[in-house]
Design a binder for these strands. Structure first.
Lengths: 224, 224
DNA sequence: TCAGTAAGATAGTGACGCTATCCAATGAAA
DNA sequence: TTTCATTGGATAGCGTCACTATCTTACTGA
């Protein structure tokens, strides 16, 4: 496959593909001659992943490169590479990292309490996500929205459900080599899905509460 | 309060505050003389909201302005304004709107099926979130990750739980006038919290499945 | 009175994702 | 064999956007 065909099949302009090649988001095509390169299906797959990371995941190009490097994983086993790649994914927006203030310290404590309650092993928690969570909670507190571990609990429970679905979903794609790419892609691609669903559900719930309607097809309040 | 004090108390640089005033993200201070303006607590609150929208929510300035305008709500009742403001919030990243292709049509159908299952009233669904959801699912399909309403179900259920928590949380802040601002702020500020929690839960669940460990305090597999 | 400071206007900066242009090598058609 | 559009690759430029630096003018307070 030539660059032009890669462009057509992916819907990405040739100029942009060249840019990605330059930025090493795509491995170079196999050079047939000095001025002719051949691209394969794996380039197409990779290109789609790159677009997902950048367009859907709003990830800076440099970060996307880190994720992709982790994906290659230089002589690591599959699980390590998966962990590495997932760890490189930036979870949501991070405000400029504040120095350790009281708000941050409090956030760390509440997260620890929550993790304890859920039986989460602190050693198995990805540091990037943990850091983001603490930062987000600290921001919350600084803006005057107090919270504690109890507030977090329902969200954490929902997150557990979601993670179970994520891994169930992943089990459907067990082509080994592609599995890690798929994990990364699905994690990123389902984010807007999740957030949209939350908005829709908020609207429904808001209507429901205003009009005192019973929730249909649901077997009770917080029987988590 | 002078601009300088507003800057100190918010941690936002005077230049940036001036920029926000120019962009009408902040209402102008009360002009004491031609060259002296006075700012109040509501400016501080508003400024913090703006920072949350822009920094945490990664919202473009223009979009933030729309949200804020909806917030003011020109002679509408509280619920209408809340709906308007929430509707103006962009839920996640939207890829450039594709023309109606098969993928989009399929997505619309599956969302309709899901909404039906959940007993959601289509008329009460915010259009922006719905559009984003459909677009995200269409992208998913285009990238080669098939899905159907059944795949969506657990995510939608989780979203319902989350929305319930959101509204419970909101009930704690019933200062009427501030309520809408709070709703907007919490919706945006909890997004990184949610996404981080998902990552943490994914890591835990992944470990759990690899090591055949039992999930603590949970009553079974995918009893969806 | 007069230095210092404040508000407002305007132009500039830096980062970033992408694009337009140029060049030399290539390879299919004539 | 000759021709010429096409390709890959290098370089420089563009457009957007959030923010910032500077300048002007008016006011304050010692």
């Amino acid at each position: 496959m030539r660059l032009a065909e890669l462009s057509e099949r992916s819907g990405v302009s040739p100029a942009t593909i060249k840019y990605y090649l330059r930025e090493q988001l795509l491995p170079p095509g196999e050079l047939v001659t000095t001025r002719r390169a051949e691209y394969g299906e794996e380039h197409l797959r990779r290109l789609r992943l790159v677009r997902a990371l950048i367009q859907i995941g709003r990830m800076p190009v440099a970060t996307a490169r880190e994720v992709l490097v982790a994906l290659q994983g230089e002589g690591l086993d599959q699980n390590s590479r998966l962990g590495l790649a997932m760890g490189a994914l930036p979870p949501g927006a991070e405000p400029d990292p504040e120095p350790d203030d009281p708000a941050t310290e409090l956030a760390r404590q509440q997260v620890a309490i929550m993790a304890e309650e859920l039986g989460w092993n602190p050693k198995e928690l990805p540091v990037a996500a943990h850091r983001t969570l603490v930062a987000a909670l600290a921001t919350l507190a600084r803006l005057g929205y107090p919270y504690d571990a109890a507030h977090l609990r329902p969200y954490a429970r929902a997150a557990v459900r979601i993670a179970e679905s994520d891994l169930d979903l992943l089990d459907e794609y067990d082509t080994a080599l592609e599995k890690i790419e798929t994990a990364v892609a699905l994690t990123v691609l389902y984010e807007p899905v999740l957030l949209s669903l939350r908005r829709l559900a908020q609207a429904q719930e808001s209507h429901r509460r205003q009009h005192g309607r019973l929730r249909p097809g649901n077997s009770g309040e917080g029987a988590v």
